[in-house]
Design a protein around this nucleic acid. Structure first.
Ligand SMILES: [Zn+2]
Length: 243
DNA sequence: ATTTTCAACT
């Protein structure tokens, strides 16, 4: 019943994460893999130990290669009142430095699977990336997200980057997730302070995603009404959050 | 103009 990569015979709930669902934060896994021998001594760490990589509790999952055009248009629409966007999509690009220039490594798309393990896309990426990244390479990672990160994921990403100084991250968000929430705002500031480029997706970013992550079958990208006006509203909001 | 949002519900 356990995943293939869990050496533990009987997974038990993560000690520091609530079992309940429904939070807008990434409320943690419903099953635990990895971390099995780490805390077997009964030495329960304090409640919100920031040094714990909770993404390690999620089994690595492979990304998708492509988005369908209608999925992209619906989920990356940067409209102000984004009703019904109940999922988050993350298009990523990983490059590495070779003699001072960037070489393509991989790209793909993650979407959270709430029915599966409730893993937010940010942690899906970290779980997947952590499984194969080399400490001897310098990586440049770019995220194009339909929603900006929640506060808990922001903390996790910041911790990850502090412990992996060979990884550089840029985040471009189509929309700002719960931007009036002080904890969300703090999470975005934490990312910036950690060296992450945090920005709003512009026309050229949408076009780039269309060309590289959408199964467009030769169709041209047709921008939606208000794409630029919405961008400027979001940029203003983000600048106020980041100071 | 609205006040949504990495669901939850059948
Ligand atoms: Zn999250």
């Amino acid at each position: 019943v356990t995943g293939p990569c869990c050496p533990c015979p009987s997974p038990r709930p993560h000690p520091s994460l609530p079992a309940g669902k429904g939070s807008r934060e990434c409320s943690g896994p419903t099953r635990v893999q990895g971390l099995c021998s780490a805390d077997a001594s009964g030495n329960s760490s304090s409640e919100d130990s920031p040094s714990v990589f909770t993404f390690l509790s999620f089994a690595p999952r492979n990304p998708m290669k492509w988005l369908d055009p209608q999925t992209f248009y619906f989920n990356f629409d940067n409209l102000q009142y984004a009703y019904g966007r109940y999922h988050c999509y993350l298009c990523f690009q990983v490059e590495r430095e070779v003699n001072g220039s960037l070489v393509h490594v991989d790209m793909g798309v993650f979407v959270n699977q709430s029915a599966d393990d409730n893993c937010h896309v940010e942690l899906c990426f970290l779980s997947w990336f952590y499984a194969w990244l080399s400490p001897d390479e310098r990586y440049h990672v770019t995220w194009f997200m339909s929603w900006s990160p929640c506060s808990q994921c922001a903390q996790q990403v910041a911790e990850f980057l502090k412990k992996h100084s060979n990884v550089n991250l840029s985040i471009f968000a189509a929309r700002l997730y719960h931007f009036k929430d002080p904890e969300i705002q703090q999470g975005l500031r934490t990312l910036k302070r950690t060296g992450v480029q945090v920005a709003i997706m512009y026309f050229s970013d949408f076009l780039y995603c269309w060309n590289n992550f959408v199964r467009h079958g030769g169709m041209r990208f047709i921008p939606w009404k208000g794409i630029n006006k919405n961008y400027w509203i979001l940029v203003t909001t983000l600048e106020e959050i980041l100071w």
